[in-house]
């Protein structure tokens, strides 16, 4: 007998993480997770519970592939690149700076999204799942580290 609530609670986190790893957007991962569980509801008569969460992962992966196979993804990226062509491309961050031993993954992600991708703190918060305050704190810490590195380099 299916207890959908239990199944949902058991798998929602892993499905969401998987979706997030595929799309890099928490809002899109949310949509994909919802769609996967809705698909499970639609096909629950045919799905053996032992096949979970692999079946849910497959649904997510297929939806992601469908999403990107649409010409619109490619076209949107091409359009965005075209509209930005009159602007100077800012050089990618020095990877050496990012890999400083005092920086953790969360600091590097915040730094990269902020200064390479030009995101606002709110956008970074939405992308990473952190709060805006947390993003601000991580950025301040990371900037402090970078400043010290720059000062050290210039003085050295």
């Amino acid at each position: 007998m299916w207890d959908f609530d239990n199944i949902y609670r058991a798998h929602v986190d892993s499905v969401f993480r998987y979706a997030l790893s595929l799309v890099g957007s928490r809002s899109l991962a949310e949509d994909l997770t919802s769609e996967a569980f809705l698909a499970l509801l639609r096909h629950r008569d045919k799905i053996d519970e032992a096949r979970l969460p692999a079946w849910l992962f497959t649904v997510v992966k297929n939806r992601v592939v469908d999403h990107h196979r649409r010409r619109t993804t490619e076209q949107q990226y091409a359009d965005r690149s075209k509209s930005d062509q009159d602007k100077p491309a800012f050089p990618a961050f020095d990877a050496g700076l990012l890999e400083h031993k005092s920086l953790k993954p969360v600091h590097r992600v915040c730094l990269t999204l902020r200064y390479v991708h030009g995101m606002t703190r709110l956008e970074i918060a939405e992308t990473t799942g952190l709060s805006e305050t947390q993003v601000k704190g991580h950025l301040q810490y990371a900037l402090e580290i970078l400043r010290k590195v720059l000062v050290k380099d210039s003085s050295g």
Binding site: L22, K61, V64, F90, R147
Partner: peptide, 28 residues
């Protein structure tokens, strides 16, 4: 800091957005 790093403010990113990066790595 951006000035010190030589990053022009309001410039365009040269790196693809995160969603496309993740999609690339997932084979989508």
């Amino acid at each position: 800091l951006l000035k010190e790093l030589g990053v022009p403010i309001g410039g365009r990113p040269v790196c693809p957005p995160l969603d496309l990066l993740q999609a690339f790595h997932s084979g989508a």
